[in-house]
Amino acid sequence: MPQTGDQAVPEPAAARPPRIDSSVAHNARVWNYWLGGKDNFDADRRVGDHVRGMFPVIGDVARADRRFLARAIGFLAGPAGVRQFLDIGTGLPTADNTHDLAQAVAPDSRIVYVDNDPMVLVHARALLTSRPEGVTRYVEADIHRPETILSAAAETLDLDQPVAVMMLGILNFVLDTDEAYGIVRRLMDAVPSGSYLAVTHPTLELGGESNVPAMAFWNEHAAPPIRARTGAEIAGFFTGLDLVEPGLVSCARWRPGPNEADAVTVPQYGAVARKP
């Protein structure tokens, strides 16, 4: 059975001071910069500014992705009735994290965050602040090792009960598409009927053609390397699952709220699907 209590402690490895290379731009920190955060270094800001000059809508993408998270969690913790969340590639903590959103709807929600970035590890305790009725835990693990993720998650989540697997802006760092499909398949095979998968992923479609040189620059000057995928390729992540309306769309267009009806369509697909 998973552990209980209002809060869990980091993994033993998390207790060791992580090694942070501030001279090389890293995705979690650059993303934080684009969102207006302060947990970044000069190298992150330089690369972030250069990429923004080549691909001016990247700030819109970052903000739309964050708003998608809020709407997806609102649906999952609300109408869908999910009480367990596995958030893989969570990134640096900011306002309205998964546990904030889920526990605002359902205070007894249990959340496991997964990331392998050392800067995220430094901020892990900011994530580990659950409401007394629920649990929030941080696990240091790599997306390329789904068995490790599942083993660690099972200490907190009951994998015999529905789980929402959140993979926002993370599968683009798995460069081989067949491997990425295999990772998603393994994760979804481990959770029962009634579970959900939420994905956002960059694309060169939806007006994203100018992202080609920007991604090339990123892969030369930052880490980890990234890739875009077509809508058809991204749809493959949902094979065997039932897409929730409106299906696979620009993440800005997935169930926008009244104040988001005029949101700019961004070159980042988003979708939520249910395991039958």
Results as ranks from 00 to 15, higher is better:
M54R: 14
G59W: 06
G53D: 13
M54G: 09
Y113M: 09
R46Y: 00
I170A: 07
L86A: 04
V82A: 10
V51E: 12
A95F: 04
D115H: 11
R137G: 05
I111L: 14
T98K: 05
R125E: 15
L69N: 04
H144S: 13
A77C: 11
I111M: 04
T98E: 02
T136D: 01
N116E: 10
A154C: 05
V47A: 08
L101E: 05
P107K: 12
F75W: 15
R46S: 10
P146M: 07
H123Y: 14
R110Y: 12
I143F: 09
A102H: 09
P162D: 03
T136C: 14
E155D: 09
P132C: 07
I143K: 04
G74A: 10
F75H: 12
R131G: 04
L127P: 04
D115V: 05
Q161E: 10
R83T: 12
I73S: 02
A124I: 01
R83D: 06
I58M: 12
V139K: 05
T148W: 00
F85S: 03
L76D: 02
V57R: 14
A164T: 02
N116V: 08
P93S: 04
G53W: 08
I58D: 07
D96M: 00
L150C: 05
T98Y: 02
A126P: 03
R67V: 06
P132G: 11
V139C: 15
A164F: 00
R125I: 09
D100Y: 08
D158G: 01
L150D: 09
A104E: 11
H123F: 14
A70F: 01
A104F: 02
Y113N: 13
F68P: 06
I143H: 08
L128V: 12
R46P: 01
D108N: 15
L159S: 10
A153H: 11
A106Y: 08
L86R: 07
R66I: 04
R71S: 06
D142C: 06
T156F: 10
M54N: 03
V112C: 10
P56Y: 13
D49Q: 03
T136G: 07
I73A: 10
G53C: 08
M167Y: 02
F55C: 06
L76M: 04
F75Q: 11
P93Y: 02
D87P: 02
A70P: 02
R110C: 13
A152E: 15
